[in-house]
């Protein structure tokens, strides 16, 4: 597995183009399994729209009447319904072949999603926080059933048996934009973030702003769990587009 970490913030459309490009290359075996780590500029995205939130199957949640300035909107092909991405949220896009050779189990989409969630769940467990995935309700949840919070959302797409899109982990991001939408059919209050459930210094011993240090620490931890063995230092987005 190789890692591409895009510095700063990335526009949703750019990340999508990049993924599609990588999917093609991965399908043709020109590159190994690749995971993208990045943060998005504020954006509300809408997936294909079928989502089971544990009680009911919903689709095409109502869009906000208006988006605040600086928040973009984008439709996308991933599974799931509405969600929000923004600075301070670590987004993981694994471009993996579902061939059973690497990270992706052979043509097992469900297994892949669980494995992706498992990466974060194991890392949180190692830090003393119990997290779980819930049957029927995609994502990673912390807290007991009365006060459960969703700290990560998952929605993927598969093309030529190669995965793209992935998981968005709320680290230190402002959660209020989730109030604009009904994230994946849930009430917005259900969203949580890691900085509220982990001891303040658990992952932020590195220098820099909380946003940067959280991202560095989490990237490092998750990359290890995903068996990343090489890092692509320079990505020429122009070249890839």
């Amino acid at each position: 597995m190789q890692l591409i970490s895009l510095p700063g913030l990335t526009r949703y459309s750019v990340a999508r183009e990049l993924q599609l490009k990588l999917v093609e290359r991965r399908a043709d075996d020109l590159i190994p399994d690749t995971v993208l780590f990045l943060e998005h500029y504020p954006v509300i995205t809408q997936g294909r729209g079928l989502q089971f939130n544990g009680t009911e199957r919903t689709r095409h949640m109502p869009l906000p009447a208006a988006f605040p300035e600086g928040v973009e909107f984008s439709e996308t092909e991933r599974g799931g319904d509405l969600t929000y991405h923004g600075p301070g949220q670590l987004v993981i896009y694994p471009i993996c072949k579902l061939d059973g050779q690497g990270f992706g189990p052979a043509r097992d989409v469900e297994g892949f999603v669980r494995k992706l969630e498992g990466v974060l769940i194991q890392e949180l467990s190692a830090s003393g926080v119990h997290a779980e995935s819930r049957p029927g309700a995609t994502g990673v949840w912390v807290g007991d059933s009365t006060q459960a919070k969703k700290v990560a959302s998952v929605g993927i797409a598969v093309r030529k048996w190669v995965t793209y899109h992935g998981m968005a982990i709320n680290c230190v991001n402002d959660l209020s934009p989730f109030g604009l939408i009904s994230p994946c059919g849930f009430s917005p209050e259900i969203m949580g973030r890691l900085s509220d459930v982990l001891a303040p210094d658990a992952w932020s011993k590195l220098s820099g702003t909380p946003r940067i240090s959280w991202r560095k620490a989490l990237e490092r931890a998750l990359a290890r769990r995903m068996s990343v063995d090489s890092v692509v230092r320079e990505v020429d987005l122009q070249d890839l587009q």
Binding site: R48, G79, V109, G155, K160
Partner: peptide
């Protein structure tokens, strides 16, 4: 061969069936 035929959606993923 490998050309996308259709798109199938499950709870968490959309899958292009080649």
């Amino acid at each position: 061969h490998d050309q996308p035929l259709c798109e199938i959606m499950t709870d968490k993923a959309t899958i292009e069936i080649p």
